[in-house]
Amino acid sequence: MIRVQGISKSFLVAKRPSGIRHAVKSLFHREYTTVEALQDISFSIAPGEIVGYIGPNGAGKSTTIKVMSGILVPDRGTCSIMGYTPWLDRVPYVQNIGVVFGQRSQLWWDVPVMDSFELLRDIYKIPPAAYRDTLTLLIDTLDLKDIIHTPVRQLSLGQRMRCEIAASLLHSPSILFLDEPTIGLDAVSKIAVRHFIKTINKEKGVTVILTTHDMNDIEALADRILLIGKGSLLYDGSVQGLRSQFGTRRTITAEYRENAHPLQIPGATLLSWTPDRAILSVDTEQIMMSEAITQLSSQVELLDVTIDTQPIEDIIVQMYKEYQL
């Protein structure tokens, strides 16, 4: 469905040192640096997938989304989405996609949400019957009934984001691009948004590509993640795969009957120790978990043991470090 091959994009950025003197100087003479926003990015996405697109700020996430939605023209590479090349077949292509920019509104600020929806209906030339059905569905699932007649400027961020998502789905697109859809939302709104994304993916088979900094979004939604850093694709695979590849460390918290000697287990590092409690970090590549537990129980009288896998957030931070992003 989506096939991206060898996409590269660079920007020419003017160097602007701070200070008045440099500002004046740059009026006459300017130095440019080339920033490689994307370097040889390739991937393909099948219909019905939810793909999480992650990476630190400035890694090229938004640039990729913009190339895929036909806003930017890449320097090199090809991109074929549903048989269209986004930047060449813009008008017929965008009829099939929905785009939500978390930080930018697509609704008209001073009028009730409903008016925006109706204008979008005319922009996308949605047939009246289809429009009515979709609208009812969206109002029910996103719980918009009470806010649909309120001007956008009076909505809370969470309410607005629900309307934004509804607005981008009015024309029943088969692909939905979400650029940081949960940015700035409270826990309740985040869960509502996630739940909804999951629902439309399951029930309508909408392919979803989302960028986010919230790893909970990824864990709740994405079957697959793409990690991008400094313009290159670093990882493409499942969340579990990421865990087994990078998250090999487990944390053991052990409580035991008082013991004066610090624990010593080869292959594990002691993170903290008191006479009745210890936290260990175990690298499962060096020592099997069962072996570690055996060692542990031979040294102390165990009362309670909890084993935690590394949170995905830590794995990502670790990966960022590893790739020096």
Binding site: S69, G70, R90, V91, P92, V94, R104, I123, Y124, K125
Partner: peptide
């Protein structure tokens, strides 16, 4: 400047 032209480009009209 605001980047809102992006929005226009993802709509199927001239």
């Amino acid at each position: 400047v605001s980047g809102n032209f992006d929005r226009l480009l993802v709509r199927p009209r001239s």
